[in-house]
Design a binder for these strands. Structure first.
Lengths: 144, 144
DNA sequence: CCAAATTAGTCAGAGCCTATGACCAATGTC
DNA sequence: GACATTGGTCATAGGCTCTGACTAATTTGG
């Protein structure tokens, strides 16, 4: 390994760790058919529902991929598709009952992991980390 | 989107951005058959070569997956397998000529992206970010 | 107001990534 | 030297993602 690993890898390692923890908790709570790829789409669903194309753009996948993942989420009861009143071509993807039920489980695990990280880094550095990442999003997330 | 996105997503967004940039640069330089999955294994190869099982552990994939990726890397000329003098069962995966040639291209792009990030964050916050991520690695990378 | 261009979404097909399970060969242990 | 362990492969299957082609609804320009 290089002496100073590049920032890409440094970002990836904790990301993967968080992901592993959250999906283990979800599986343990009975949401064992929820996958990371599905989550990356699911996370982008807004309060009133979001169009497939918007989800695809925000998750940076093709609309075909997004459609494939939403199909699975729908079949598993995590989301539902309703007609978009503003456009007859489009449908809004909304979070369904089972999706709502999964959110607190994921949120609790995220909070738990973040607490561990904060304990390791100290409150100040943890806040700096979040602040830097949030600022970075401005130039790395086309849909921030 | 939630008001305060979880740290997992905040880590993922710049990671994905960096990855996209690096692979675009590699492809433009003629390394168009190099994939992110291969890179996650390739990055872990040590100076004298590394065993498949070690690569698998460090990249957190199964040895079958690591073997599959190394097969591709070998076929494309990025790595080579040599017998491990210390153990006749094992072979060391070493970076081959084409792999060595790709490294500076990737490194230059990483440096470019990191420079952009530093310009956006300021030198101090950028250093804090790297420091926090490096510290986080202690508790999130089983093979740090 | 209508023809052309654009946009939302689906279908079909292919390739890549990853895992489980079974297996073989070499090594280490006692 | 028998037995458990370790390094690695083969076979198989499932999941993720893409390109290309297509339908239907909407928007735009004249």
């Amino acid at each position: 390994m290089p002496a100073t690993p590049n920032l890409g890898l440094l970002l990836f390692i904790p990301y993967r760790s968080m992901e592993t923890r959250v999906f283990a908790a979800l599986a343990a709570a009975g949401f064992d058919d929820f996958t990371p790829a599905q989550a990356r789409v699911f996370q982008r669903i807004g309060p009133g529902g979001t169009r497939l194309t918007d989800l695809a753009d925000q998750a940076q996948v093709t609309k075909q991929t997004a459609g494939f993942l939403v199909d699975q989420l729908e079949r598993a009861g995590y989301v539902r598709r309703v007609p978009d009143p503003a456009d007859a071509r489009a449908r809004l993807i909304q979070i369904a009952e089972r999706g709502q039920a999964a959110i607190p489980v994921a949120a609790a695990t995220v909070a738990e992991v973040e607490a561990e990280w904060t304990a390791h880094l100290g409150a100040k550095r943890a806040a700096q980390l979040r602040g830097a990442l949030t600022a970075l999003r401005e130039i790395t997330d086309p849909y921030a």
